[in-house]
Design a protein around this nucleic acid. Sequence first.
DNA 1: TTAGGGTTAG
Length: 652
Amino acid sequence: MSSLRNQLNYFCEKGKWRELAALYQEIQKQDFKPDSFTFTTLLKSTSNHHFRPLHQGRAIHADASKRGFVESDNYVANALVAMYAQCNSLHDARKVFDGIREANLANPVNWNTAISCFFRGGDHKGAYELFCLMKCPNDITWSAVIAGYVQNGKLVDALRVFKKMRGESDEIGFCVSPYSDTIATVFSACGQLRDLCFGEQVHGYAIKISPYVENDGFVGSSLVDLYGKCSCLELAKLVFDSMVEKCVVAWSALIASYVSNGCPSRGIDIFREMVYEGPEPNYVTLSSLITACANIPNLTFGKELHGFIVRRSEFTHDAYMSTSLINMYSKCHCMICARNIFEIAINTLEFNATPVYNATIAGYVENDCQDEAWEIFRSMHQEGSATPNSVTMAIVIPLCTMSSSLHYGKEVHCYSLKSGLTENIFVGNSLLDMYSKCGKLHVAENQFKMIVKKNRITWTSMIDGYGIHGDGEGAIRIFQKMVRESDVKPDQVTFVALISACSHAGLVEEGLTYFKEMDKEYGITPLDENYGSVVDLLARAGRLDEAKSFIAAMPKKPGPSVWGALLGACKIHGEVEEAEKAAKILLKLEPKEDGFQKLLSSLYSETGMLDKREEAISEMRERGISNRQGLSWLETGKRNYRFISEDMGLVC
DNA sequence: TTAGGGTTAG
């Protein structure tokens, strides 16, 4: 009999489920008496099995219950709770736990196991209910609850429980001293919430209770991450430098801090130091570095890293890695490489593939490949391997806007409503912009009203909406509401939208006043785009000389937006000579941009200067600029679209 | 404890 028991244990340890199930059925027919250890190993094996065979777990439960183990053995009870939670049957897990609780058999380990299991199963409410029922939570319980909330993305709740643990909350406190792991978890929550103030308080408290707490790898790394996420790069570096033993997580957190704060090259420099004096990089380090290559962009180093990842095959099948690589190749305009990574990822990875789909759709959108973007979005439904989320919607809704496809936009809006994604601010703002740009200003207004927590982009998009519909006064009204009634501050983009709205409505003086207020009232330094919108404001109103004087008086060198605005206005007013001057400068500033040259060619066409038009077209051909016909999208009926050619003077 | 995909601009 003992050999049977050994064989059973062997199959459990090796995870050989089929063999185990067959053996267990066989020995049940014999006079075999399973003990507590047999049941716990059988239940653990069920929990760890890839398919989570709940029916098998229930059979073991029935057998254990029949033999009296559930009510008398805490180990078996614990394993049962864990098994049901792992098999996503939290109701059964709670039923088992309530059984031992009501029989007064539950010890603190049972409580802590049950709480952790409910958090792992995603039922944070159920976990907290158990926590509240527990009369004497110990330090492990507190840690489990804080960590559980962080794992479930309930960061505010995690900090609330931490405050309660230290007796700082309004609720009754328990003043338990936290483990360093708990402190690290709290730093992580503060970082994710960008709550620098509370993070710093906890940092001070942690040093007070343990002066060398930063030397702990978990705590030090989490602190680097906290300061990095709160854009305090100097503090992040200071903590990192003070760490006696710098683990791979600390290095990775520091690199990620630089990459995510607009210093990707510095992130790569830190990586070079890491190669020289630090530990081996892991998949997180490499993922951040690929993002650095995407942001610079640096295709050469990106490809080197990709080669390194392929050689280290254990990193290849990582969801984050695939997503980062797709993003990197997209930003470097290598959509063939991005597509290859996508195909491999969706065929080989066992995970939620939504981010991989999102990165690929975003890549195609960014590289002006709308058809391919739609193809990937549709395949997401057809393959059924990924569920569109709020990020997908925030990519796809602007895609509807680009092709002025109100019909598709409405379909995506309906899907978002059904999936409960419209409360997401990115989705809400995209919908507002889509309705506004597709000509449905009143729907955009409703959408604007429905967004409860409006951010800068909400306000700016609404101002722009009124602007593109020629309602300058409406744009001003919304801007005043924004600055008077909300706590959201305008930025340069807000002023581009506002002054542009004034420009199109002929509100020149108002536009000029707002431009002056930008710096004086709001302390915002104008960008080239802001100067450009003032040039457009003046020149569109026929005040070309003032526009030129304005450019001459600029405190910095005028850029493409300024000259582009002047060129556009010259085209409206038929000012060939000034347009030629502006186009010449633009050609030097942005040699790869073909729009300016086409605009000039179109001006020649409109003013009957056909020789000059031919000359401009020849020059464009020599420079390899495509002579593509200008196209507009129109939606007719429900699903039909037509191309309307515009006279760009380029049709040969 | 560390990493990925997202909304506004004449």
